[in-house]
């Protein structure tokens, strides 16, 4: 895999090599084992992926229970929302 192909995969599928097509993973790992530039590209991509993966704050137990109760109360409404 060339550095250009590696960068293209990063730009398209992000830094999680496990989510890349299986036939590209071995070539990417081989490049990473020998290229400091590729390692640097991956490091920066991992940081950016971390932002994109930021989880939404979870619901509090009270609010989750209230939402679930509201849904269950409305099950017999005739309309399809």
């Amino acid at each position: 895999m060339s550095p250009k192909q590696f960068r293209l995969l990063i730009d398209t599928l992000g830094a999680d090599v496990a989510k890349w097509p299986p036939d590209q993973r071995a070539a990417a790992l081989a490049l990473l084992s020998e290229s400091a530039d590729a390692q640097d590209v991956l490091r920066r991509a991992v940081a950016f992926d971390g932002q994109l993966r930021t989880p939404e704050p979870g619901l509090s137990p009270d609010r989750r229970a209230s939402l679930v109760d509201n849904i269950m109360k409305r099950l017999d409404d005739d309309r399809d929302p």
């Binding site: 939404e56 979870g58 989750r64 939402l67 849904i71 409404d77 929302p81």
Partner: peptide, 29 residues
């Protein structure tokens, strides 16, 4: 429900997320 509220927050916005989640599950039912 947390997953669907979170998804709706991202795709539509926080103000509508609870209502969307309720509609999603009512539609499933």
């Amino acid at each position: 429900v947390d997953r669907i509220v979170g998804l709706a927050r991202r795709v539509v916005g926080s103000a509508e997320a609870d209502d969307i989640a309720q509609d999603v599950f009512l539609k499933l039912w």
